[in-house]
Design a protein around this nucleic acid. Sequence first.
RNA 1: GCCGGGAUGGCGGAACUGGCAGACGCAGCGGACUUAAAAUCCGCAGGGCUUAAAAGGCCCGUGGGGGUUCGAGUCCCCCUCUCGGCACCA
Length: 862
Amino acid sequence: MQLRARQLHFMAETTQKTANQPEQSELRYEPQRIEEKWHARWQAEPGRYAAETHESKRKKYYVLEMLPYPSGVLHIGHVRNYSIGDALARHMWMRGYNVLHPMGWDAFGLPAENAAIKNQVPPRQWTLQNIAHMKSQMDRLAFSYDWSREITTCLPEYYKWNQWFFLKLYEKDLAYRKKSKVNWCPECATVLANEQVVGGCCWRHEETKVEQRELEQWFVRTTRYAEELLADIEKLERWPEKVRTMQRNWIGRSDGASVDFAIDGNGKITVFTTRIDTIFGATSIQVAPEHPVVGDFIKVDPTLQAKVDELVSQRQKSRESDDPGVIDKHGVFTGRYVINPFNHEKIPVWVANYVLMDYGTGAIMSVPAHDERDFEFAKKYDIEVRVVILPRRSEEPPDPGKKESPVLPYTDKESLVINSGDYNGLSNQEAIEKMTAFAEEHGFGKKVVTYRLKDWGISRQRYWGTPIPMLYCEKCGIVPVPENQLPVLLPENIEITLQGSSPLARMPEFVNTTCPKCGGPARRETDTMDTFVDSSWYFYRYTNPQLTDRALDRATVDYWFPIDQYIGGVEHAILHLIYSRFWTKFMRDIGVVKNSEPITRLFTQGMVIKDGAKMSKNKGNIVSPDEMVARFGADSTRTYALFAAPPDRDLDWQEAGVEGVYRFLGRTYRFVARHASVTRIYSSSTLKAGSGASPTARAIQRKLHQTIKRITDDFQGRWHFNTCVAGIMEFVNALYAAEEEIASGKFPSGALADAQRNLVLMLAPFAPYLAAELWEVLGEKSDLLRQPWPQYDPALAKEDEIEYAIQVNGKVRSRVAVPADSPKELVLERALADDKVRVAIEGKEVVNKIVIPGRLVNIVIR
RNA sequence: GCCGGGAUGGCGGAACUGGCAGACGCAGCGGACUUAAAAUCCGCAGGGCUUAAAAGGCCCGUGGGGGUUCGAGUCCCCCUCUCGGCACCA
């Protein structure tokens, strides 16, 4: 507080001095003065960043940064994310696009409940306070958001539509209720989605082991769209390959067959396999401990129970071990047998700890010769290893008795099926086709496609979320809340604890209601929705957030969608982005939108690192944006966030680096302010090459157009904003180098005006405050945001003369300058005439001469 | 284990399609201005050898080893380390 007061006092002094003498060389760059002045002006102009309607004649551009959780304060990671998006938005505005650049709040979620318990503040109040503060931080950083479109997911105006969409999901049989084992985080006291379990622990509490509980849950049938979600990844050409791969793996399609093995006695066990071609090599069947058949077997042989329990506890232990990767394989022989439908052999049934109940059928056929896991298991329990496939037709079959390792997959065309009755001599692919057909024909198997993707469990036993709009009536069963009764309001004034069931369940006035079907007593669903529901479709709502009679307006959505550019952390590569893609497809199928994918181009920025570690509260290496803004200004903070590293890479935050950017902005400010009087009078003019104009001025102009090209290209392509900023620095350095001539008055005024105006325009996306100030200093009244982006002119960027490096055998021996566009012959002639080159090649035989236009000459001698 | 990034001066990074490695910035050193300091402005700066010194010259150098090429930080093969994701998926 004290420091701040002193700072302000000091600034007041200098401000007065410079205001009276703007041309003095001791001009100071005072970001606080400049930024507070423009901040006040812009705050008084709320419509400043508003997009035009969908009837606009301009081409649309929808740029979006992932909406934050209102935790209380912005951190540097946010600043980086938004600085990238804001630079792009401002650039696109200047390019004449109708830009949509909205912001909102992912405002439901557990931290608000925790804060409520800790500080005795209602979640709503806590959340809204945080939002107000973070919004003011964003404004201070001059992020160009259209706040008229702001959404806050915890407000009924928004979550009403979550509920409406849920009813639609239910109508389409895309939402269903089932009793299931769920991941339970004791710390959160709630259920976690599979996606929220990281290495057996809660994604929020990395130290907390997840438990299994059985509960009635609402699920969304994401698996119905598994195939389309997978196939459409191919269309996402402008997404990072990394994210596409992660999604492909997450969906995890595998093509195979199910095969029924008749149990010796009665019943059957159905296995899933991708390698039916190896079925003659199956020497046992393995089932998951949870497989229903295990219960049946136990009824017959109760002694089995204890053995299976032991197996399960072992698995639990392995899961809790530090290295969850490779666990020991354990198994229990059930004493029972099944019949292989292909060779009618009797093979044993085992219960194995590595077989997963929730993938495939929970049962596998074990082919030790051709699968590493099966091999390991077979060796341990002394089960027969039978080779049924050879990698090449030429190879001799190995002696199975001597085998020390599995023969492994062998899926190429050269493979050869052996020891398999009628199928001997086929390739692996042919065998798969024929065997599957045979199984289908005889009714004991069929072609099956399985996915790793599971349905999305959305029930949360928490208070601070969207109430699931369903009722339970004694007579009618599950009844959806009628649409005209939405929203089901989340009650206020509730006592929040982290114990057991949902806080809502302890509120009779919420729970007890009447059934809309029969009028009898009914209970409300007391679980709330996973907050990923809110973020699955929020970006659509930005197109028309004020609508009260429907979620979206089709014409408006069709105009803005898909999102042209989405920017956020890679940590959302799977969850958020798969749910969002799913939701879009679902909305398309109920006619709410027409597009099948929500996002055209995705950009995932790198993490912010400090002192070698990811910035986090735990590590105590948090940098506060407020502090940076107070010390160096918002412009320096933003520009540094872009300058320190390319946006897709991790960024090492160094305070000295921010100071460096601050110095650069100061240099820019002083130069422009010092020579503003010229620009205020003269209009910009361009110099023609070879017109006898000042060579210094031509050099500046050349550098200017080279810089314009560099930045313009980057915005459209690689986004290496670090080099864009470096380019502007170089340009400013060039202006300083020419300052003596400029001060002397020999420098053409029109050219100086041109350089200054364009410098400010190029700066505008990165340092909006300084750019606005300098624009005004240059006597401009117009809004910089709507100024056309500088036009690149190749003729003006072109060098008159090019310096070639002259190599002899690949080593630079000399340099010669030749006029640009010199023919190769001339360049070579000059190179060979060079003294140093002559010395280097004297008495040697020149075997090759290579001229790379505009770059170098390489003379190869022997 | 599998799938992706990455490794370049004291530090962050640049070199976009194989063509002068180290742009730009930080830290450092020297100078100008100043009574002085801060601020500012100008300059130097990968390592080594040669030289009284400078200029100049020579050699080495992009995690390690090999290869392709007139030419490799960039392409190919093998390896090391590191970060991120997934992990018994049948």
